[in-house]
Simulated scan of single mutants.
Amino acid sequence: MKPTTQPGSSPLKWVKSSYSGNNGNCVEVAVLPDGGRALRDSKDPSGPVLTFAADEFNAFVAGAVDGEFPQA
């Protein structure tokens, strides 16, 4: 993971989950040209962006599905 404010030179298509409400507290994701993913806070679209290589993001999603990150 690497924080950045500009993940690439081409515009990204940002999407959020269809489960997101209209309260503005959402995480948006975009596919990067190299297959990685970028994440940002929907409340601050011009703010910081976290970028992940494809294998890093896939490992995170697999861990979430497998319950590796229990809620406190």
Rank of each mutant, 00 (worst) to 15 (best):
A38Y: 04
K43F: 08
G67C: 11
P70I: 10
E68I: 00
N25K: 12
D55E: 12
C26Q: 05
F52H: 09
A59P: 02
G63H: 01
V29G: 03
F60T: 00
A62S: 09
S42C: 13
P11L: 09
S20L: 12
F60I: 00
V27Q: 10
Q6I: 14
G63W: 01
P7G: 05
G67R: 12
G36F: 08
M1V: 01
V29M: 04
M1P: 00
A38K: 02
T5R: 14
K43S: 09
S46D: 11
D44F: 15
Y19V: 08
N25S: 14
V31G: 05
G24N: 01
G36Y: 06
E56K: 02
D41N: 15
S20Y: 13
T51R: 03
A53E: 15
A30M: 03
G24L: 08
L50G: 06
D44N: 14
Y19R: 15
L32I: 01
A53G: 13
V31F: 05
M1Y: 01
D44G: 05
E56Q: 12
P3Y: 11
A53N: 12
G36R: 09
E28Q: 14
N58I: 00
G8R: 02
V29E: 00
P11H: 03
F52C: 07
A30N: 03
S20E: 07
S42Y: 10
A30H: 03
V29C: 04
D41S: 14
S17Y: 09
N23H: 11
K13I: 11
P33W: 02
S17A: 07
Q71D: 09
D66H: 14
T51A: 01
C26E: 10
E56A: 07
S20W: 13
A53S: 13
L50T: 09
K16G: 14
A64K: 05
S10C: 06
S42F: 09
D34M: 06
D55V: 10
A62V: 08
G35R: 10
G47V: 13
V29P: 01
V27P: 11
N58C: 03
S10H: 04
